[in-house]
Computed example of a mutant assay.
Amino acid sequence: MEGSNGMKRATIKTIAKMANVSHTTVSRALNNSEHVTEKTRKKILDIAMEQGYVPNVAARGLVSRRTYLIGIFFSDLNVGTSPSFLIEVINQVKRILPDDYSFAIDSISHYQGGVAGMEERFDGVIIVSQSYHDDDFIDQVVAKNLPVVVLNRPIERRDIYNVTTDDHLGVEMAMSYALRMGHRQFGMIKGEASFVSSDARQRTFESILKEHQLTLNPDWIKAGNYLLNSGYEAMKQILMLPSIPTCVFISNDDMAIGAVRACLDFGLHVPADISIIGYDDVEYAKYLEPRLTTVSKPTSAIVQAGVTALVDMMDGEAQPSENQTLAPKLMIRDSVKKIPLNEN
C-alpha cells in the first residue's frame, strides 16, 4: 500500500518487524492496551511516528468502534460437530487470539432469520464451515463488511480468506497403507450426511476400492454422525453380519473410539480380529489401547492461519491474497494388522 506521496505506507507488520515484536503487541500498543509495558509502547509509538504509520480509517479496527469480541460459528453444534473437534478449535483460538479479545460460539443453524446487528456485536467472524448449507450465512456476514475467515471447508468464493485441508489425500494415504498391510475387505462408517468432509471421504474410499478392483459390500458401509455413540452403533451393525471386513475405515476418531468399544463388547480385539483406521488424530488417539492409526487433520494449523489473518484484517491489514489447503498426515500406530494376502 502506498501513501499519497508514492512512498510505501507503514503497516502494523512493518512496525512489528522493526520493533522485533509480534503484530499483536504492536496492535495493543497502538490501542493503549494495559498488556504492553511502557518501554515497549514507547518504542513502538516512536517507530510508528518515524515511519509515518497511518491507521486504515476504513477498517473496523478503529479503537472507538471495537467490541473486542470475535464470533465463532460452526455449522451446527448439536449435529455432527464432534466434541473433540470443537475443543481443539476453541483451544487454538484461545492460544492465538490477543488477550484483549473474547469470543462467542454459536451454530449457523441459529441464524435462519438473518444476521441483523452482527456488525455491532463483533469485530470479526470465524466461520468453521462443514456444509454447503452455510453459504447463505457466509454471504450475509460478508455483506456486513465484517472481517471474516472461513475455515475447514473449501468454498467457491475467492474474496474470502479460506483455509482448509485435503480430505481426498487423507483417505488415499489411509487406504494405501491398509492395502500395503494386505487388507482387501473393507468396511466404512460414514460421517454426518450433510457435511462436505463426509461426502469427500466416502467418495474417495469408494473410488480407491474401484481402482483396485475390490468389491464394495454395501452391508459393510454404515452411517454415523461424527459422534462417539454413532460409531459404536454402526460398528455393532457390522459385527452382527454373517461376515465382516478385515479393516474398517471410520470417518473420524470419535466414531472410531466408539467402534473399538463395540468390538470389545463383542469379544473381538483390535487389531487381532479386525483393524480400524480413524480420521482427525484427536489428542487422545495416541493414548488408546490399541493406539489408533489415523489421518492427522491439521486443525491447529488451520485455526492458527485463520485467526492470524483475521487479527491482521481487524488491525487494518489487507486480506491475504491466497487461500490455503494444508496437507494431512498419516499417523501409523497399532490398530491395523498386517495380514497375508492368502487370508483374504
Rank of each mutant, 00 (worst) to 15 (best):
K8D: 02
T14M: 06
K17C: 12
A19T: 10
S22H: 05
S27F: 02
A29Q: 01
N31W: 00
N31D: 02
K39M: 08
I44A: 11
I47K: 02
I47N: 05
I47L: 14
E50M: 10
Y53K: 03
Y53Q: 04
Y53I: 04
P55K: 04
P55A: 06
N56D: 15
A59D: 04
G61M: 02
L62G: 14
L62E: 07
L69H: 02
F74Q: 06
S75R: 07
D76I: 05
L77M: 13
N78M: 09
G80Y: 00
G80D: 03
G80K: 04
I87E: 14
Q92P: 11
V93Y: 06
V93N: 09
K94S: 15
S102M: 13
I105E: 08
D106M: 08
D106Q: 12
I108L: 13
Y111M: 08
A116H: 15
G117W: 00
G117M: 00
D123K: 01
V128A: 15
S129E: 11
I138T: 11
D139T: 15
V141H: 10
N145L: 04
V148S: 07
V149I: 14
N152G: 07
I160C: 10
V171S: 01
E172V: 03
A174M: 02
M175W: 04
Y177V: 07
R180C: 11
G182Y: 01
Q185M: 08
G191H: 01
E211H: 05
Q213T: 14
T215C: 07
N217S: 03
D219P: 00
Y226C: 10
S230T: 10
I238Y: 03
L239M: 08
V248H: 05
L264K: 09
L264M: 04
L268S: 06
P271K: 05
P271A: 13
Y279A: 06
Y284P: 03
E289N: 08
E289M: 08
V295G: 06
K297H: 08
V303N: 12
L310K: 04
D315N: 11
D315K: 05
D315P: 09
P320C: 14
A327S: 09
A327F: 02
K329I: 06
L330F: 00
I332Y: 02
I332C: 07
I332V: 14
K337A: 15
I339N: 14
I339V: 15
L341R: 10
N342E: 09
